[in-house]
Design a protein around this nucleic acid. Structure first.
Length: 350
DNA sequence: AATTCGGGGAC
DNA sequence: GTCCCAGAATT
C-alpha cells in the first residue's frame, strides 16, 4: 500500500536542496551515508538558526576540526571565538562537552541509539532523533518548527503551541516510514522550509496538497496557532573600552553561565533600569555620542560606550589587556562587536 | 509550564 | 517594527 511518506520521498528525490552536510538522495541510494560527526555538527548549529546562517560556520568548523577527536582536543577559547556571531553560545560550550564525552565514553564514535544520544550535552529530543535518522537511517521521528507547522496543517490541528506538541508528535510518528528514515526526516523539513512556509504557503505545488485538511478548510495560513508572546523590555548599560599605549585592548571573558556565557566582551556595568557606573579601572573616561543598540531574545539593550586611553603602568580591576595582534573583533559576540565598531574610530592607535 | 538563552533574514 | 528559524537547559 502506498503511504503519504512515499509521495513526499518522491518529491524529495527531485527537490532536495544541496547543503554542505547533506548526502543527496541519489548518493544515499547508492549506499553512502553522511559522517555522523558532520550530521551532529550541523544539527547543533541549526538549532533555532537558518540554513543560510549556518553554512559558513559549518564549513569553517569542519575544516579546522575535521573529526570529533580533533574537536575534543581543541582549546575552549578557540571554539568560542569560532562560534562568535552565530548566537546561543551555550551550544558551543555543549558542543565541546559532547565531543569530549563521545571520545571519552563512546570510543570516538557517535552512538546511533536515540536514548543514548539524549544523554549527551546539547542533544535534546529533536537532535537525538535527527542524528539517529539522518546519520544512521533509524526510523526516528523529528519534530522541529517545520514539522510542527506541516503536521498542524495536514491535520487541521487548531490546538495552540506549545500545548499541541504531543499531538503533533503523534501525527508525525504515525507517518514516519521504516525505510529511508533519514531522507524522510529531511524531506518533511525541506517541505516546511520551501513549500509549507509560515506565510503564503505554496499549496498548489505541495506533494501533500490532496490529503491536507487545512488546505481543504482554507485554514493553512493561520496554522499552527501559538500562544501570544509578551513584548520585551528595554535595559540600559555602560560598556568600557580601554586601550593601552601599546595598542592592547582591555577585555574580559564572561562567566560560563548566563547571557553570552564564556564569550569575550568589554567590561561593563550591570544591565537594567538605571545601571550604576562600574569602570574596570580608574581613567579619564570619555562618552561617545552614539549608543550601541542590540536586541536579544527577551530584551532590548541600549549601551552607553565610554572610552579611555591608558598608560602602560595601569593595572585593571577587572579583565585583562590583550595585545593588538592577539585580538580579532570577529571573536566577539555581535553586541560587543557593535561596541567595538563605535569605539575603534576614536581609539586609533598608529 | 515558563523562562532563558542570539542573530539575522523575510516581510 | 514582527515573526520565525532543523531547540535545549533551567527553573
Amino acid at each position: 500500500m502506498r503511504e503519504l511518506s512515499d509521495d513526499l520521498l518522491d518529491w524529495y528525490d527531485v527537490h532536495a536542496r544541496t547543503m554542505p552536510w547533506r548526502i543527496s538522495p541519489a548518493d544515499r541510494k547508492a549506499g553512502n551515508r553522511p559522517d555522523p560527526y558532520f550530521v551532529w555538527m550541523s544539527e547543533i548549529m541549526l538549532q533555532q538558526t537558518t540554513v543560510a546562517a549556518v553554512k559558513d560556520y559549518f564549513v569553517k568548523f569542519t575544516r579546522i576540526w575535521p573529526t570529533v577527536s580533533d574537536l575534543a582536543a581543541a582549546d575552549d577559547a578557540d571554539v568560542m571565538a569560532a562560534w562568535a556571531g552565530l548566537g546561543y553560545y551555550a551550544r558551543a560550550r555543549n558542543l565541546l562537552k559532547c565531543a569530549r564525552t563521545v571520545v571519552a565514553d563512546h570510543g570516538g564514535q557517535f552512538p546511533a541509539d536515540h536514548d543514548i544520544l539524549l544523554t549527551l550535552p546539547g542533544i535534546g529530543p529533536y537532535t537525538a532523533a535527527a542524528v539517529s535518522a539522518i546519520a544512521f537511517d533509524l526510523p526516528e521521528t523529528v519534530l522541529d518548527g517545520n514539522v510542527e507547522r506541516v503536521m498542524a496543517r495536514l491535520n487541521d490541528e487548531h490546538t495552540p503551541l506549545p500545548a499541541a506538541k504531543p499531538i503533533l508528535m503523534d501525527y508525525a510518528r504515525s507517518l514516519t516510514p521504516q525505510h529511508r528514515a533519514g531522507d524522510y526526516a529531511q524531506a518533511v523539513m525541506d517541505l516546511g522550509a520551501t513549500i509549507c512556509t509560515p506565510r503564503n504557503p505554496a499549496c498548489g505545488i505541495c506533494p501533500w496538497r490532496t490529503p491536507c485538511k487545512a488546505r481543504i478548510a482554507g485554514t493553512a495560513q493561520a496554522l499552527p496557532k501559538k500562544t501570544p508572546k509578551k513584548k520585551i523590555p528595554t535595559r540600559k548599560g555602560i560598556a568600557y573600552v580601554a586601550r593601552r599605549e601599546d595598542g592592547a585592548w582591555l577585555l574580559e571573558t564572561r562567566p560560563e553561565n548566563g547571557l553570552l556565557g564564556g564569550m569575550l566582551g568589554w567590561p561593563g556595568s550591570e544591565w537594567g533600569e538605571s545601571p550604576d557606573p562600574d569602570p574596570p579601572l580608574a581613567a579619564d573616561w570619555t562618552a561617545l555620542d552614539a549608543q550601541a543598540r542590540h536586541t536579544f531574545t527577551h530584551f532590548h539593550l541600549h549601551l552607553e560606550v565610554l572610552t579611555a586611553q591608558v598608560d602602560r603602568i595601569v593595572l585593571p580591576d577587572r579583565g585583562q589587556f590583550i595585545a593588538h595582534d592577539d585580538f580579532s573583533p570577529s571573536a566577539l559576540p555581535t553586541v560587543m562587536r557593535k561596541v567595538f565598531d563605535l569605539a575603534a574610530a576614536t581609539l586609533r592607535h598608529d
